[in-house]
Design a protein around this nucleic acid. Structure first.
Length: 479
DNA sequence: TTACCTTATCCATCGATAAG
DNA sequence: CTTATCGATGGATAAGGTAA
């Protein structure tokens, strides 16, 4: 429940149509250190917090470095869209006003109207290069991630080149690194809370950070104001006056945040704040929340691959280099689920995992640039099929599903035998067999019923299982 | 440590203008 | 007519500074 003070009731009533507990996401990298609160002077902005450094290089032509609450709102919206659609391309909306209304910002023109300032911040944000560096002091390792928010930006709302066709297709292409960062380290947030706290960039930062911090807090921790200042206090120096000022302003905003996130177990002390384990702001019942709790960080991925799956180091590094973290994580989760589910036997766990990674649980995240090649591949594949019924079923499925899905799953199964009532498929691996069974069996059977109404069942085998079952029979699969 | 101040940002509103 | 952008204004509030 959100408690509203008298100041917010008015604003709340303006956004009645919003669902309570709308879930948004923000990239973890952007929670650990914060953007400037007010207009910075130079073109370089740097912020260090423990072993994490955030530096932003602004683009002079775009105005400089983004600051204030708008970029934070845009970033949380972007992260949410990415998480929802799992696509690097983000569609902004049919107009700037429309876009801003979606974000819950009232629209006004003029030099200091919301439109101009918002436009300015968008330019600054999308033109900036944001670099995150994790410095692991224990082994002297530097992991640096360069995050460019947008690869190419098409701003259509400039009235000079107003074009009706472009208006409805305006989109930005997110930088690959930023995209990966969001997918592998999402922090769930309440969009309504963002709406309420948007007046203060500091409050937004505190909210994002607190939500993230509580999600993995296991025992109480005392954070003194000096630590907090190094993370949140953008313009304050270390002089005594400034320390005092920061403390006062921080507490003021923190109290505001706690009114929204009132389940947070926070005690404000003289020397700092005491965090105790609390419920996260997003309710436990949300499935995505549960998923988020099992987030495996990069190091954990490494250890998991090494200890649980006994992969050689070289192969692990190769996998981490080649595949998105989220894909590997999904594959691990899937494999573990499989193992626990009814004590399913998996002959070779390592091979199963690798196969899961290589076949990626989310084909839609694959690059879409090779559409032409994909079409050729599919044509060739279809030509190689002699059986008319099998081909027709595939054509039905092709209409129903996107090309990447078709390629990832339906091109990796082939009909082995067909009787009047039953069709037997052979799949390339155990993993593909399981996945087809779990996700597409109904649709495949339905497609078959359209082609052969008498059919009642559809059976899947993997090459391995099938081969061992039939022992001497050799099975030919076109690859 | 406190109260007070300046500056910049933020918000709501009005009216003007243009396009469909 | 509706919808969207622009310009201006006044008042509120946040960030950061200063004097006592």
């Amino acid at each position: 429940m959100i408690r509203l003070t008298k100041d917010y009731t008015h604003k709340k009533s303006l956004t009645v149509q919003e669902e309570p507990q709308d879930i948004g996401y923000i990239a973890r990298a952007l929670v650990s250190a914060s953007l400037p609160h007010s207009k910075p002077k130079g073109l370089v902005y740097k912020r260090q917090c423990n072993n994490f450094t955030l530096s932003i290089i602004g683009n002079d032509e775009a105005g400089g470095i983004p600051y204030g609450s708008y970029p934070r709102i845009i970033l949380s919206w972007l992260s949410t869209e990415v998480f929802k659609n799992k696509s690097r391309e983000i569609i902004l909306g049919k107009s700037l006003s429309n876009f801003m209304k979606n974000l819950g910002i009232s629209v006004s023109g003029g030099k200091w109207g919301t439109l101009s300032r918002f436009k300015d911040q968008m330019c600054r944000l999308f033109a900036s290069t944001i670099t995150c560096t994790y410095h692991d002091a224990s082994n002297g390792k530097f992991i640096s991630t360069k995050i460019s928010i947008a690869d190419k930006t098409r701003v259509f709302w400039n009235p000079e080149n107003f074009d009706n066709i472009d208006v409805f297709n305006s989109k930005i292409l997110l930088g690959e690194e930023f995209y990966n960062e969001i997918l592998s380290n999402p922090v769930p947030i309440d969009i309504e809370a963002v709406q309420i706290l948007k007046d203060s960039s500091l409050a937004l930062d505190i909210y994002f950070w607190l939500t993230y911090r509580m999600s993995y807090l296991k025992k109480p921790i005392l954070l003194n104001f000096e630590t907090l200042q190094s993370q949140f206090g953008a313009g304050y120096t270390t002089s005594r006056h400034h320390k005092y000022e920061f403390k006062r302003k921080f507490i003021l905003q923190l109290e505001k945040v706690l009114e929204v996130y009132n389940e947070a177990n926070v005690n404000i002390l003289d020397s700092g704040i005491l965090l105790s384990p609390s419920n996260t702001h997003i309710r436990m019942s949300d499935s995505i929340k549960d998923k988020n709790q099992t987030i495996i960080e990069q190091d954990d991925l490494y250890h998991s691959l090494k200890n649980d799956f006994s992969l050689p180091e070289k192969q692990i590094l190769n996998l981490l280099d080649t595949y998105e973290k989220s894909i590997i994580r999904n594959a691990i989760e899937h494999t573990v689920e499989r193992l626990n589910y009814n004590n399913t036997k998996i002959n070779n766990i390592t091979a199963y995992l690798i196969s899961a990674i290589k076949n990626s649980l989310s084909p839609s995240t694959h690059t879409l640039e090779h559409n032409e090649n994909n079409k050729q591949d599919i044509d060739l594949f279809l030509q190689s099929i002699d059986n008319d019924h099998e081909k027709q079923v595939l054509l039905v499925l092709l209409k129903q599903y996107d090309i990447p899905i078709f390629k990832s799953w339906f091109m990796k199964m082939r009909v082995d035998t067909i009787t009047e009532r039953e069709v037997v498929y052979v799949c390339k691996t155990d993993f593909i067999k399981e996945y087809l069974l779990d996700h597409y069996k109904e649709d495949i059977l339905y497609a078959w019923k359209q082609v052969c109404p008498s059919l009642e069942n559809c059976i899947f085998h993997s090459i391995r299982n099938y081969a061992s079952r039939l022992e001497e029979e050799s099975i030919c699969i076109n690859s």
